[in-house]
Amino acid sequence: MQQNQLFALTSPEIIFLGGGTLSPEAINKVRKKLPQTQMIEFYGSSETSFISWQAVNDGKKTSSVGKLFPHVELTLGPKYRLTVKSPYLFSGYLNQPYPQSWTTDDLGTLKNNHLYLFGRRSDIIEHGANKIFPEEIERMAKDLCEDCIAFGVFDERYSQKIALLLLNPIEKEKLIKILAQRLPKYKLPQIYLETPTLNFTKNQKISRKELEKEYFRGVYHEL
């Protein structure tokens, strides 16, 4: 999960929204505060620049990041890895050749020229034989707390256990009961943690790897 950033254009009537995959709920919050403003969500990375965009004043589909920019070619590799080829690619790292394409850390699929993201490859939770996207769990718990982040923690038996860090959650017994109705058993968290605040990196992002380190340091309290 990432802290979405807001960038105002020269015209106050239009704003670009980016920095992460925006949820429909986040779009609604911005729309309530800026009802007369046109909102455009864009998706891209430092290496690829712009990949896709969409107008979101009328809402958006979960996980959608819009249609591809002109001249962007997207290839779906093994396990939904995204490789981008476009005139917007960066010029390469120091002492390396100009890249002809770039494979991102994001995983997703393309439907009718619209891109849908599942999550980041580095964030996948390896629980037993299952590969679980933390965003799937977060979507099911988002209305049961103020905010939440799912992440994996090392476990000798399962490779990783699923941890769910919650900000101002409902009562634990009720929380677990509702999640058990929404998620298959193998996606249910084994660890529930509570925090008064969420810590972001200098780039205003959430690092799930850092959350795992903080868990083992005892930073968070069991719910």
Rank of each mutant, 00 (worst) to 15 (best):
Q2C: 09
N4S: 11
L6M: 12
F7E: 15
A8I: 07
L9N: 08
L9G: 07
P12Q: 07
E13I: 04
I14F: 14
I15C: 15
F16D: 10
L17T: 04
G20L: 10
L22P: 00
P24R: 08
P24F: 09
A26H: 08
I27D: 09
V30P: 06
V30Y: 14
R31G: 03
R31D: 01
K33S: 13
K33N: 11
Q36D: 13
Q38P: 00
I40Y: 11
E41H: 15
G44R: 03
S45M: 11
E47W: 02
S49N: 13
F50W: 14
A55N: 11
K60P: 04
S63V: 00
V65W: 00
G66K: 01
G66L: 03
K67E: 12
P70W: 03
V72S: 04
T75D: 06
Y80F: 15
Y80K: 13
Y80T: 10
K85C: 15
S86A: 12
F90Q: 10
S91N: 12
S91I: 09
G92N: 14
Y93E: 11
N95W: 10
P99Q: 02
Q100C: 04
S101T: 08
S101G: 05
T104F: 03
T104A: 08
L107K: 13
N113D: 12
H114G: 09
H114Q: 12
L117R: 04
L117F: 06
G119T: 06
R121Y: 05
S122V: 04
D123I: 04
D123R: 06
I124W: 02
E126L: 12
G128D: 07
A129P: 06
A129R: 15
K131N: 13
F133K: 05
F133A: 06
P134R: 07
P134Q: 08
E135I: 07
I137L: 07
D143L: 13
C145D: 01
C148W: 01
F151D: 03
F151P: 00
V153E: 05
F154L: 10
E156V: 09
R157K: 12
Y158P: 00
I162G: 01
I162M: 02
A163P: 03
A163I: 10
L164H: 05
L164D: 01
P169S: 02
E171N: 11
K172T: 11
I176A: 08
I178K: 11
A180H: 12
Q181E: 14
P184C: 05
P184I: 00
P184E: 02
K185R: 15
L188F: 03
L188R: 01
I191Q: 07
I191V: 14
E194F: 09
P196G: 06
L198K: 14
T201L: 14
E210Y: 09
Y215T: 05
Y215F: 14
G218V: 14
